[in-house]
Structure formats: structure tokens, C-alpha cells
């Protein structure tokens, strides 16, 4: 086999491999989005029943039975959940951040020391948290209840790679009546 033909084969194989990987990732993404919508439906159904964690409908985020008894963070102002959220070396406060599914969350972001960042990939939320300044940013909580990771997105020191928090999304019905089992 000539060198040019071999090169062509590698190029074509590479392009096909890249295309397959892209299709695969789009397919898994689509499945994830569909599951999220199904999760939303499951939440609506839960309002007619009881604790969603008992039904095993909560996929992906793995909401534990204890999570639904968590008190939501911050307070509700004009229908939005407003939370004072602090970053520090190397964590977040409050941790976990507890919110209702599908509600608008307004974070008042502060840093105790150096510049940090906050990234919640599930809701495509990202913001720098400069020191000595309060930044206000908002996002809509996922419809699907579960536990979602929060990361620091600005390098803040040697243990930055391990700085993370958790956002717990609870269905509103279960949280308002935590003991109705």
C-alpha cells in the first residue's frame, strides 16, 4: 500500500471516528435532556402522591431520602429564592445549596479571600466571585430533583481542583411537608 493511500486511510478513519464521537455525545446529551423532562413530569406526578425519593423516579442526581428534609437556603423575595452564597479556600457556604425544582435562584456572591468562581454545569451557570465585592447572578434550578455539583471556576490555590460544593434540588411538595411518609 502506498504511503499516500495509507495517509488517506488514516485521515478518513480519523474523520469518521471524530464524527462518531460527536454523534455519540449528542445522543447522550439528548437522552439526558429527555430524562430531565421526564424527571419534571415525575415531579408533577409526585404532587398527587408522596415522597419522590421513595418512588425511585429521581434519576441521575441521586437524591437521598434525607435530602428532601433539607431546609431550602436563603429566603423568597418576589417569588425568587435569594441566597447569600460565599466562596472561600476551598469550599462554598451554604453547602449544600438547597433550592426547589424549577424556581428562580438569585445568588449574592461573595468571596472571603481571593477571587473565586462558581460553575454549575447542569444549569450552564458560571460567574466570577471577586473578593471584597458582592456580585448578584441568577439562574433557574433544574426541574429534575437531585444533587448537582458546584465547582470553583477560577484558580484559587493549590487545592483548587478539589474545591466543590453541592446544589440539592428538592421537589417543592416534599420539602414543604417533610414528614408526610
Amino acid at each position: 500500500m502506498g504511503a499516500s493511500r495509507k495517509e488517506l486511510l488514516f485521515r478518513v478513519g480519523g474523520v469518521i471516528g471524530l464524527a462518531l464521537l460527536l454523534v455519540f455525545t449528542m445522543w447522550t446529551r439528548q437522552r439526558s435532556v429527555t430524562a430531565n423532562h421526564e424527571g419534571g413530569d415525575a415531579v408533577k406526578e409526585e404532587h398527587d402522591h408522596s415522597n419522590p425519593a421513595e418512588h425511585g423516579d429521581v434519576k441521575g442526581g441521586e437524591l437521598s431520602s434525607g435530602d428532601v428534609e433539607l431546609k431550602p437556603s436563603g429566603k423568597v423575595v418576589d417569588g425568587k429564592r435569594v441566597v447569600d452564597y460565599e466562596a472561600f479556600k476551598f469550599g462554598f457556604s451554604p453547602d449544600p445549596l438547597v433550592v426547589f425544582s424549577g424556581e428562580t435562584v438569585v445568588l449574592k456572591l461573595k468571596s472571603r479571600d481571593v477571587e473565586h468562581g462558581i460553575m454549575i454545569p447542569e444549569v450552564d451557570f458560571n460567574s466570577p466571585i471577586p473578593p471584597s465585592k458582592t456580585t448578584t447572578k441568577s439562574f433557574t434550578a433544574p426541574v429534575k430533583p437531585g444533587r448537582y455539583p458546584i465547582f470553583c471556576s477560577t484558580y484559587c490555590g493549590a487545592d483548587h481542583g478539589n474545591m466543590r460544593g453541592v446544589m440539592v434540588v428538592v421537589p417543592s411538595e416534599a420539602t414543604e411537608k417533610p414528614h408526610h411518609k
Binding site: G13, G14, L18
Partner: peptide, 9 residues
């Protein structure tokens, strides 16, 4: 795969 596609080796 990208290496194969862009460099052909």
C-alpha cells in the same frame, strides 16, 4: 481520531 484526521498518520 483528530490526530489521524489532521496528520494522516
Amino acid at each position: 481520531f483528530a490526530q489521524c484526521a489532521f496528520f494522516g498518520n
